[in-house]
Amino acid sequence: MKTSRIWLLIKGELYRLHKYNVLFISILIAIIWGVVLYFVDSVLFNALLPFLILIDATMMSVMYIGSVMFFEKKESTLSSVLVTPVTNQEIILSKIIANTIHNLISTSLIIIAFIFIKQVKINYPLMLIAIILITAVFTGLGLLLSYYQKDFTSMLTNLMILGFALLLPSALYGFNVLKGNAWEYILLLNPVEAASKVIAGGFKGISLDWHYYFSLFYLLIGGLLTYKYLILPKFKDYAVSISGV
């Protein structure tokens, strides 16, 4: 893997995120979130801000990488990249890193705005780690999901179903519908729940208990294993299937 080449690919990805208006849309959404949060009371604000950061780093990451993949599918540009000296690993990593940088910009906008407006107390290093890790993991999952979708519409539909399925158990547990200590452990295996614990650790005043550390390593190790055993090996099949060479 060549650093200079992967950097070129990342720059290319970021430039295309700009040219295809994905960056504009994500910043616009961040501004809309910001406006909504500005007008809510402090109790609701404290509950909503971590939730919006969670949605931005998880579901929105999947959606943004999905849009990139379907633009490329539609224009068959991946075929052209496949016949260059770049490796599949470089292609995938550049997409994950570019999407993470891009998402970091939009999420940071929300956080920075509220540091000044509502005096939010942020643990900067932990919040940075949280956003980077979660966005990278969910971008990888988004890539994997896009391999198996016909088009962007079907990806959006399945993402909504998947998002609902992942958020539902946590909601049921929160409302005491699911009872018992066992659920506390089971729910941590849900990547969205793990992500919410890691984001919560990025706010000052939250004690970092075993839930936090388990979630952090679960996402890290789980993300790496998913990359090695699913995202990377399945990429070639996907690329060949969409290349009408």
Binding site: R16, E75, T77, S79, V83, T84
Partner: peptide, 19 residues
């Protein structure tokens, strides 16, 4: 992948970023 330094491929369909 250095093999691709030596070859050029022209596909039947357009393969460019339209924007």
């Amino acid at each position: 992948n250095d093999f691709y330094e030596e070859i050029g491929v022209s596909f039947e369909m357009p393969i460019h970023f339209s924007k």
